[in-house]
Each structure stands twice: as structure tokens, then as C-alpha cells.
Computed example of a mutant assay.
Amino acid sequence: MPQPTHHKAWQRHWHDVFDAALGPDDKEPPENVDEDLRLQFEFASLDAEARRRAFSVFPRHEEMLARLQQYQSTPARAIGPDEAVQLLRDGLALVEPMGLDVPDANGPIEVLDTSATTLLKAFSEADSPFIELHDALGEMALRETGEAGQDAYHFLVEPLYRLETSYPILHWVLWPLCAPPGAPDATEADYRLWRGGWSAGWGRDRVFVFDRRKEFGLA
């Protein structure tokens, strides 16, 4: 499969930034950017100025970087089950008009925690209620910010995921590539649920929020 148009140039740029900020690396970067572990794992070690230089090559880099900085500078705040359920309803109501398959925003939503089941079991037959939105974000980036935006979306997925192993966070940071400035943010609900200590699930004809506040150190 051919590399996206911009990835090789961005790979070289990021290695230059990493060399300047963290010291040179003697290894030759892999041909396939997706296999470049330095980009994936050392991004977390960059200071704010180096991250600014790394992001400077992307469309809407200032908006994305502002979100990343906001996430990292804002302490997580636990939210209760009622707020978690309402957040999920609001998020589903926002996505429904986009023509993507999501559960009914007004349907029943269960509240689960580890007293009833394990996280692994709860999600063994469930996925995110926003799974179709997540799958559509790359194409949304193409429509909104062109080929460079779509390439940037795919280039940044792994480095951002490695920061916190969180898809809700990376989707929220990358949203500016996918929609006009000021548009309602379809990733906000999932992001705020995660930051509040919850994960949403959808499977076997049920929708639920799973309480992870204790796991996240918020309880």
C-alpha cells in the first residue's frame, strides 16, 4: 500500500525536531512511517516548543496543539453517573443527524461498574456507541482540510494514542482537521466521559456507561 503523499516529508521533519530536542538517533528511519517507533513513543518526551515545531507542518496545527495543551494542563474531574448518561445522550443526539449509525439518544442507558461485571466482559461484545464516527473521521478530514488534512489525521493517530492509550483523547485533539471552526464537536462527549472516568459501550441491543473512576484515580 503506497504511503500517503505527505508522510515521508513529515517523518523527516519530525526526526529533525526530535534530533534537536532529544539528541540525534543513529538508526535510519524505517521506510514505512507506520513502523517508525521513534515517532510513536518519543513524541511524549518533547517539550512545548518542540511540539509546536513538530505540529507546524499540519493544517490547523494551532487548533490541535491548543487542544493537546488544554488536555495536558487541565486536571481530570470525576463526574457522576447521571452526568455521564446525559453526556452520552447529548453526544448521540449530535451525531445522529450526521447520517451515522448510533444508538437512539433517547433510549435506555445502563450504568455499569465493577460490582456487576468486569470492564473486559462488558466490552467483550460491545464497542463504542461512536464507532461509526471514529471510522469516518479520516474521510471527514479529507473533505474539510483536503489530502493534507487526511494525511495529518493518519500520521498523528499513533503518536497521540501513545500519550495516554486513549482513543477519546486523540479523536478530540484531531477534531479541528475534520470540521469547520466553531462547528459542534462530535468528539466532545466521548472525550468528557473519558476525562470524567467513564467509557461508553454499545452491543447486544444495549447501551451503557461503565464506571472507571476508581481505575483512573478519580474516586
Rank of each mutant, 00 (worst) to 15 (best):
A148N: 08
F210H: 03
T187D: 02
P97D: 06
G217R: 08
L68Y: 05
P75M: 05
P168R: 01
S45M: 13
R143L: 15
R38Y: 11
P159F: 04
A54R: 01
L170F: 12
H13Q: 04
D211F: 00
S166W: 09
E42T: 14
E110N: 08
K214N: 13
W198F: 06
F43C: 11
V17A: 06
S124G: 09
P159C: 07
H6D: 10
R195Q: 12
D26Q: 12
G138H: 11
E83C: 10
G80V: 06
F210P: 01
D190M: 05
E42H: 12
Q3C: 08
H61R: 11
F155K: 07
D25P: 07
S56F: 01
A44N: 08
W198A: 10
D127L: 15
H154M: 14
Q11P: 02
S73R: 09
P4S: 00
L39Y: 09
Y71R: 14
W172P: 01
D101H: 07
E132I: 13
P176Y: 01
S199K: 12
T165D: 15
Y153Q: 01
S45T: 12
A183F: 07
L92N: 02
C178G: 00
H134Y: 15
Y191I: 09
V57C: 09
F41C: 10
L177E: 05
D185C: 06
S56T: 11
W10M: 00
D25C: 14
A200H: 08
A66W: 08
D82P: 07
I169C: 11
E164D: 15
L39Q: 01
G80W: 07
M1D: 11
A105R: 08
A179H: 02
S56W: 08
D47I: 03
L137M: 15
W175V: 06
G182Q: 04
E158D: 14
R52E: 15
L68A: 02
E164H: 15
L119Q: 14
A50R: 03
R213Y: 05
